[in-house]
């Protein structure tokens, strides 16, 4: 029989730095009993084709994320500040090096 399901290994999020000069990027997740195993598994799972030069693993439960419910209050206020973007300023059009 398949036996009683044992406690599942916890989930880890994997971030891979694809090359020097680049940030770590979320690659996916995996299961591992401890951080050392998570690093090894991440290496075998997400860098089999030389996709990375560095790996971070973070226990999924340690990630704190913004909630979609707060999306409006977190991100909408930034939408009405066009003066933060260079394209807002038209007076300098045609003037060199500006």
């Amino acid at each position: 029989m398949s036996g009683s399901p044992t406690a599942e290994w916890p989930l880890w999020e994997v971030f891979v730095r694809p090359g020097r000069g680049l940030s770590h990027v979320h690659a996916g997740s995996l299961h591992a009993a401890d951080a050392e195993m998570a690093l090894g598994n991440a290496r075998d799972l997400y860098t089999r084709r030389g996709e990375g030069v560095s790996i971070w693993v973070v226990a999924s439960t340690d990630i704190h994320a913004s909630s979609p419910d707060e999306k409006d209050s977190l991100f909408d206020p930034a939408a009405d500040k066009p003066y933060r973007h260079p394209t807002f300023y038209t007076a300098s059009e045609g003037v060199p090096n500006l």
Binding site: W9, L30, H31, A32, M37, G40, N41, D44, L45, R48
Partner: peptide
Amino acid sequence: PELEEDVALGN
């Protein structure tokens, strides 16, 4: 014993 280990042993 676990799928991740299939990948590791394969490597």
